Deep mutational scan, measured.
Amino acid sequence: TLFEALYDYEARTEDDLSFHKGEKFQILNSSEGDWWEARSLTTGETGYIPSIYLAPV
C-alpha cells in the first residue's frame, strides 16, 4: 500500500525524512508506533516519518 503526505514536514533529527504535501511513500516498517520507516517515491530517500501526516492512496 502506498501512502501520500497530507502536509509538509521538516525533519527534526537525522533519522527523520523531510517531505512535501502530496509526496508518495512506500512504507518499509510500520511496527515502531506512530513513526514509520518509509521510502519517498519522489526522492528515493528513506527515513522516519510521522504516520499521522499520511493517508493511504
Rank of each mutant, 00 (worst) to 15 (best):
T1N: 14
T1L: 14
T1H: 13
T1S: 11
T1W: 13
T1F: 12
T1K: 13
T1Y: 12
T1D: 13
L2I: 15
L2T: 08
L2K: 05
L2D: 04
L2Q: 06
L2W: 10
F3S: 02
F3Q: 03
F3E: 00
F3Y: 15
F3H: 05
F3P: 00
E4K: 06
E4P: 00
E4L: 11
E4F: 15
E4S: 06
A5N: 00
A5G: 03
A5C: 02
A5D: 00
A5K: 00
A5T: 03
L6H: 04
L6A: 04
L6N: 04
L6Q: 07
L6P: 00
L6F: 04
L6R: 06
L6D: 02
L6E: 04
L6G: 02
Y7Q: 12
Y7R: 10
Y7I: 13
Y7L: 10
Y7W: 13
Y7N: 08
D8Q: 05
D8H: 06
D8Y: 05
D8C: 05
D8S: 09
Y9H: 06
Y9I: 03
Y9K: 04
Y9E: 01
Y9A: 02
E10R: 09
E10P: 05
E10C: 07
E10N: 11
E10Q: 13
E10T: 13
E10Y: 10
E10L: 10
E10G: 06
E10D: 11
E10V: 12
A11R: 09
A11F: 03
A11S: 13
A11G: 11
R12F: 08
R12H: 10
R12I: 12
R12M: 11
R12Y: 08
T13F: 15
T13I: 07
T13W: 13
T13M: 14
T13V: 08
T13A: 12
T13D: 12
T13N: 13
T13E: 09
E14R: 09
E14I: 10
E14H: 12
E14G: 13
E14P: 12
D15E: 12
D15Y: 15
D15N: 15
D15G: 15
D15M: 15
D15V: 14
D15F: 15
D15I: 13
D16V: 15
D16S: 15
D16I: 14
D16C: 10
D16W: 08
L17A: 02
L17F: 14
L17T: 03
L17W: 06
L17Q: 03
L17I: 12
S18C: 03
S18L: 01
S18E: 03
S18V: 03
S18I: 02
S18W: 03
F19D: 00
F19P: 00
F19V: 06
F19E: 00
F19C: 06
F19M: 14
F19R: 00
F19S: 02
F19A: 06
H20C: 07
H20D: 06
H20W: 08
H20Y: 11
H20L: 13
H20G: 08
H20N: 10
H20E: 10
K21C: 05
K21Q: 08
K21D: 01
K21I: 08
K21L: 05
K21T: 07
K21E: 05
G22T: 03
G22E: 02
G22W: 05
G22C: 05
G22Q: 03
E23K: 00
E23S: 04
E23Q: 07
E23Y: 04
E23V: 02
E23C: 04
E23I: 01
E23D: 14
K24W: 15
K24H: 10
K24S: 05
K24Q: 13
K24Y: 12
K24F: 10
F25D: 00
F25M: 03
F25A: 00
F25V: 01
F25L: 05
Q26S: 08
Q26N: 07
Q26P: 00
Q26F: 14
Q26G: 02
Q26K: 09
Q26W: 14
Q26I: 15
I27K: 03
I27P: 02
I27G: 01
I27C: 03
I27M: 03
I27Y: 02
I27D: 00
I27V: 11
I27E: 00
I27S: 01
I27H: 01
I27A: 02
I27N: 01
L28T: 06
L28H: 04
L28F: 06
L28K: 05
L28P: 02
N29G: 10
N29S: 11
N29R: 07
N29P: 05
N29Y: 07
N29C: 08
N29K: 08
N29D: 14
N29Q: 08
N29T: 08
N29H: 08
S30N: 12
S30T: 13
S30F: 15
S30L: 10
S30P: 08
S30A: 12
S30W: 13
S30C: 10
S30Q: 12
S31E: 11
S31N: 11
S31M: 13
S31V: 11
S31T: 13
S31P: 10
S31A: 11
E32R: 14
E32S: 14
E32Y: 13
E32P: 09
E32K: 14
E32N: 15
E32W: 11
E32L: 14
G33Y: 10
G33T: 13
G33S: 14
G33Q: 13
G33W: 10
G33H: 13
D34I: 10
D34M: 12
D34R: 06
D34W: 11
D34P: 09
D34T: 10
W35K: 11
W35V: 09
W35H: 08
W35G: 03
W36G: 00
W36F: 06
W36P: 00
E37A: 07
E37W: 15
E37I: 14
E37L: 15
E37N: 07
E37K: 11
E37S: 07
A38S: 04
A38H: 01
A38W: 01
A38C: 09
R39Q: 12
R39V: 14
R39S: 07
R39W: 08
S40H: 07
S40W: 01
S40M: 05
S40I: 05
L41F: 08
L41M: 11
L41V: 09
L41W: 06
L41T: 08
L41S: 04
L41C: 09
L41N: 05
L41Q: 08
L41G: 03
T42D: 11
T42P: 01
T42R: 12
T42Q: 10
T42I: 10
T42S: 12
T43F: 02
T43A: 02
T43Y: 02
T43W: 02
T43C: 02
G44R: 04
G44E: 05
G44K: 05
G44A: 05
G44I: 01
G44D: 06
E45D: 09
E45V: 11
E45G: 08
E45T: 08
T46H: 08
T46N: 05
T46F: 07
T46L: 08
T46K: 11
G47P: 00
G47R: 03
G47M: 06
G47A: 04
G47N: 03
G47Q: 03
G47F: 05
G47S: 03
G47D: 01
Y48D: 02
Y48K: 14
Y48C: 07
Y48N: 07
Y48L: 14
Y48V: 09
Y48M: 13
Y48F: 14
I49Y: 01
I49W: 01
I49F: 02
P50N: 15
P50R: 10
P50Q: 14
P50W: 14
P50D: 08
P50H: 15
P50F: 11
S51V: 11
S51N: 07
S51Y: 10
S51M: 11
I52C: 11
I52N: 13
I52E: 11
I52K: 15
I52Y: 12
I52W: 14
I52V: 12
Y53W: 08
Y53L: 13
Y53S: 08
L54R: 00
L54M: 10
L54F: 11
L54G: 01
L54Q: 01
L54I: 09
A55V: 13
A55N: 07
A55M: 12
A55T: 14
P56Q: 10
P56K: 07
P56V: 09
P56S: 07
P56W: 05
V57S: 09
V57N: 04
V57Y: 10
V57T: 08
